[in-house]
Amino acid sequence: MPRPDSTGPDYDVVISGAALAGSAAAILLARRGARVALLERRSDPDGVQGAVYPLLDGQRLPGTR
């Protein structure tokens, strides 16, 4: 199948969502040489999953055991 004409940049991968998983995937793919476009609709992607990050460091959230 022929590739459609495009005036924009070419990417190997487009990732929708720049939170923890999307950012990690983008970094790993880019380190392997992929041309990555990372898209995020929010101006602060940390705001959505910010409550998860302390758990990754073994910290406790207030009100949890």
Results as ranks from 00 to 15, higher is better:
Pro62Met: 11
Ser43Leu: 01
Pro4Ala: 02
Gly22Leu: 04
Ser6Asn: 15
Ala30Ile: 10
Val13Pro: 05
Gly47Trp: 00
Pro4Ser: 01
Pro45Trp: 04
Gln49Tyr: 01
Asp57Gln: 07
Arg3Thr: 14
Ser16Leu: 13
Ala19Pro: 01
Gly22Ser: 01
Ala30Gln: 03
Ile27Val: 15
Pro62Glu: 13
Glu40Tyr: 00
Asp10Cys: 00
Met1Glu: 01
Gly47Met: 07
Leu29Thr: 02
Asp44Thr: 04
Pro54Asn: 10
Gly50Met: 08
Arg31Ser: 10
Gly63Pro: 06
Glu40Val: 00
Gln59Asp: 13
Arg32Asn: 01
Ala24Gly: 05
Asp10Tyr: 06
Ala34Val: 11
Arg41Lys: 15
Ala37His: 15
Leu39Phe: 03
Asp46Met: 14
Arg3Lys: 12
Arg65Thr: 15
Arg32Gly: 09
Val48Met: 01
Gly58Pro: 10
Asp46Tyr: 12
Thr7Pro: 06
Ala51Thr: 07
Val36Cys: 14
Met1Ala: 06
Ala26Ile: 01
Gly50Phe: 06
Tyr11Glu: 08
Asp57Tyr: 10
Gln49Val: 03
Ala51Trp: 11
Pro45Met: 08
Arg65Tyr: 09
Gln49His: 14
Leu56Lys: 10
Ser43Asn: 07
Ala26Met: 07
Gly33Asn: 03
Arg31Leu: 12
Ala34His: 15
Arg3Glu: 15
Arg3Gln: 12
Asp46Ile: 06
Pro4Thr: 06
Asp10Arg: 10
Gly33Met: 05
Arg35Asn: 12
Val13Trp: 05
Arg35Thr: 12
Gly22Ile: 08
Asp46His: 05
Leu28Ala: 09
Glu40Ser: 01
Asp57Arg: 09
Arg60Leu: 15
Arg35Val: 13
Arg60Asp: 15
Ser6Tyr: 09
Pro4Glu: 02
Pro4Gln: 05
Arg31Pro: 12
Thr64Phe: 13
Ala21Leu: 11
Asp12Tyr: 05
Ala25His: 05
Gly33Ile: 10
Val14Ser: 03
Met1Asn: 07
Val14Glu: 00
Ala25Glu: 03
Leu38Gly: 01
Ile27His: 05
Gln59His: 14
Leu38Trp: 02
Gly8Asp: 14
Arg42Ile: 04
Arg41Asp: 11
Thr7Asp: 12
Gly17Glu: 08
Ala51Pro: 11
Gly33Gln: 10
Pro2Ser: 09
Pro4Phe: 11
Gln49Cys: 14
Gly33Ser: 09
